[in-house]
Amino acid sequence: MSIQEQYKKRVRELLSSGAVKMVIGYQAGTTADRRRPLFIRTPEEAEKLVLDSACIANLSGYLVTEGLLSDEKSVGIFLRPDGIRSINILAAEAQLNPEQVVILGFDGNDKEVTALQGEKARDFSAIIASIKEHAPEAPRNPQLEQIEKMSPKERFAFWQAEFSRCIKCYACRQACPMCYCRRCIVDSNQPQWVNTSSHTLGNLEWNVVRAFHLSGRCVGCGNCDRACPVNIPLRLINAKMAGEVLGAFDHFAGMSETQEPVLASFKKDDSETFIL
C-alpha cells in the first residue's frame, strides 16, 4: 500500500472513531505541481487526500484559527518535521494544547515521501534532535555565503534592492505559523510603531521587524518565501538568523513543547559579545 493509501485509511479510522473532529491535509491543486490545503471532516472526504513530494506547505498555522481548538476536541494534521517543530513552538508559547493535535507525520525529498512514526509532537523528539545535531554541517545556501562575503555596504545595497520590490501585503506574515498575533505590531496606528507605507523605509522596517521577531522561532518551513508575491528571498534572512541563534545560544527552534523562546529567556552563560 502506498503511503498515501495508508494515510487515507488512518484518516478514515481517526474520523470514524471520533478521535479527531477534522484532519488537515493536502489535495490536488489547479496545476499538476500544486497542492491545496484540505479540511477532512468525514471519512468519505478522505478520498480527496493527496500525499506526495509536492506537499510542502506547513499547515500548522490553521490550528490557531480562532475557535478551532476551543471545544477541546482533537484535530489531525499532516506535518513534516518543520511543521512538528512549529507545533512545539505554538505549545511552548501557549497558543495551543499539544494534546489536541494528532500528527500524521511524513518526510521526504523532491521525489518521494515516507511516513514518520508517532502521534503527539513529543513522539518526534528524537527526529528533531537529530536534525539539530546535523544542522551545523547541513549544506548552506550558496547565495547566503555570497552575501556573507559582501562588505556591509554591498550587503545593504543588496537588501535595499530586494526590499524595494516589497508591496507590504504581509503575505509572509499571514503564511507563517509563528506569526499568530491577532493584531500585529505593524497594524497598530495608535501609536504607529512602524511606518505603514510601502516605501523604502517602511519596507526595510517591516522586513527587519519580521527577521528579528522570527529569530529563534522560525522553523525554516519556507511558507513565507513561497507566499511572497514578488519573490523576495526571505529564506536567506531566516536561515541567517537561525544560524546566528544556533551559534550564539545553542538554540534550535521547536525542540520541545516546553522550550523557552530564545529572545524571551536569560541564561547566565548566554554569550554577551555585543554588550561592552
Binding site: 491545496r36 490553521y62 501585503c169 503575505a171 499571514q174
Partner: peptide
C-alpha cells in the same frame, strides 16, 4: 483555506 494574505488584491 484562505489565510487573508491580500496578495490576490494587491
Amino acid at each position: 483555506r484562505c489565510i487573508g494574505c491580500g496578495s490576490c488584491t494587491f
